[in-house]
Amino acid sequence: MSARRVREWPLAAGLSVPLFFVLAPFVWLLLSSLKSEMEIAVAAPFSMPDRLLFENYLDAWNIGGFGELVVNSLVNVALVVGLTLAVCAPAGYAFAKMQVPGGEAIFYVVLLGLTVPIQAIVIPLYKVLSALGLLNTLAGISLAQVGNGIPFGIFMMRSFFRGIPDELIEAAKIDGAGHATILLRILLPVAKPAILALVVISALSTWNDFFLPLVVLISPESQTLPLGLVRFASTYSTEHRLVFSGTVVSFLPVVVLYMLTQRRFTEGLTQGALKG
């Protein structure tokens, strides 16, 4: 660690000031989510709610149909995360440790995908999903999101596997292990932090994705959380108390996920993204 000669508490106290500003929007959001529509409409930003209206959360849940939305979002995230890992880990391994014919060229074609914003491909993508009968399905949106996430996933897994000494793999080969065995038995256990990092990154971006679901998920029963929040806004008026409480509901699960995995997650970033 760098120069741990600075005294802990003065620095921590000093850092609390920027932290306060960084977290202030959260405090404001939490407070607002407990206000009545009238208080939000007229009150000054710093005022405390008259009464803490926890029923905003119930209303957001019931009126917004959040039960179904949460289930859909969870299925969506599970599909994306599972599939991303299943295809990116072997591909990353192959690019890092195997003789792939034309490997470098293919790798750059994959990296190209990093630079393509979703807005640039949304219409052709819609047509592809339509042709495959995947519009308005969680499978369809998930496949599309995996497709978009693959460049980063492969890049990360490749970097991680490149950091693993060749000797380890050679030794396993001498013991008669094939590539599949090497990947599953030897490398994946070592790769846990990198995998966690990939899990968190792809889960985060899927959970919060708005643009693609907006175009692909048409009917209410197939929609995900971010679209649910739109239901509280209409042409000329928005029910803010529900938008705010719905927003809190929508990010609590990710906060929990992050808190649970954050130690390993940081490690994974170190090894995944930076080495290689």
Binding site: L83, A86, V87, C88, P90, A91, Y93, A94, F95, M98, Q99, V100, P101, G103, I106, V109, V110, L112, G113, V116, A120, I121, V122, I123, P124, L125, K127, V128, L143, A144, V146, G147, N148, I150, P151, G153, I154, G178, H179, A180, L183
Partner: peptide, 27 residues
């Protein structure tokens, strides 16, 4: 290696190709 690398990379390339690369080329 060449044979198994196709198996290793294939699924990723298929999904990437269908849902990102092809739409990009169509654009």
């Amino acid at each position: 290696d060449a044979v198994s690398s196709i198996l290793f990379i294939g699924p990723a390339l298929l999904i990437y190709g269908l849902f990102t690369l092809f739409p990009a080329l169509d654009t």
